[in-house]
Design a binder for these strands. Structure first.
Length: 258
DNA sequence: ATGGCAGACCATGTCTGA
């Protein structure tokens, strides 16, 4: 079972890329973030035509998440129970016995801002939410744009990023708390090339110069991670005309017989 | 030292992103 994540930065603009990518990479599950469109405008037909099922939670202009799945989606939920939030950042569903939680973690803008406080509060709510999800669903994958680089080596230049937004101690502690629930960062289960990133700034030729960050992750529960066979970044879509600033990350699992 | 690009919106500038 292949489970992928991709922040598309406007599904309206990126739909051709997503459809082409799914055609070339027929993953079982794809978590999308930053749809930037309302549910009424979600392009269901394009995914149906490829044989995919979709559950979405969108809003106008900002945020928005969806789960695209080759197999039917069950027990779809939107948002985090007990955490009121106008911003559409969480969607979850079960497919083939695996619980998928797909998240778009707040950016946080800058340390000390209201948005930063919201990010830290939101991450605490995510911890509570995932603790409950793990209890109910031992086979759990959490896909998403976490907007946190876990360690200095997940930035192109620690002297630029360390201590700042996406790399502050408080953010990393919140991510660590998620891992401490019994989740693993699938990417680091395997030997990887140095300077491996999932996001590059549009400005200053960031991608060409590989000035990136690794901020998109697939976390897997103990029961699921035992069956993880690979985790790779696909930089191909970042090379296309009018790309998203993020590129897909794919984790592959050998599932125990149902 | 700063901004640099991209997307959305009752747009011709402003907000947000990371």
């Amino acid at each position: 079972m292949k489970i992928a994540t991709w922040n598309v930065n406007s599904l309206r603009v990126r739909l051709p890329h997503v459809i082409e990518w799914l055609t070339q990479n027929p993953v079982d599950v794809l978590g999308l973030q930053e749809l930037k469109l309302q549910d009424a405008d979600f392009p269901h037909e394009a995914f149906q035509a490829l044989g995919y099922h979709v559950a979405a939670s969108g809003q106008k202009t900002y945020n928005g998440v969806a789960i695209v799945s080759r197999h039917p989606l069950e027990n779809v939920t939107r948002g985090m129970l007990g955490y009121e939030d106008e911003q559409k950042r969480v969607i979850a569903a079960t497919t083939r016995g695996v619980r998928i939680v797909n998240v778009y973690v707040p950016n946080g803008q800058a340390l000390g801002t209201d948005k930063y406080a919201y990010k830290l509060d939101w991450l605490q709510a995510l911890e509570r939410y995932l603790r409950a999800q793990l209890t109910a669903y031992p086979l759990l994958a959490v896909t998403g744009d976490y907007n946190i680089a876990p360690a200095p080596e997940d930035t192109h230049d620690p002297t630029v990023w360390e201590g700042g937004i996406l790399c502050s101690d408080a953010e990393r502690e919140r991510l660590r708390a998620l891992l401490d629930l019994g989740l693993s960062d699938c990417f680091r289960l395997f030997e990887q090339a140095e300077q491996s990133f999932t996001w590059w700034d549009y400005r200053a030729a960031g991608f060409r110069r590989n000035l990136g960050l690794r901020i998109d992750h697939v976390l897997a529960s103990r029961e699921l991670v035992a069956n993880c066979r690979a985790c790779v970044i696909d930089t191909a879509p970042r090379k296309l005309e009018r790309p998203s600033d993020h590129t897909p990350l794919i984790a592959e699992f050998e599932l125990p017989a149902a």
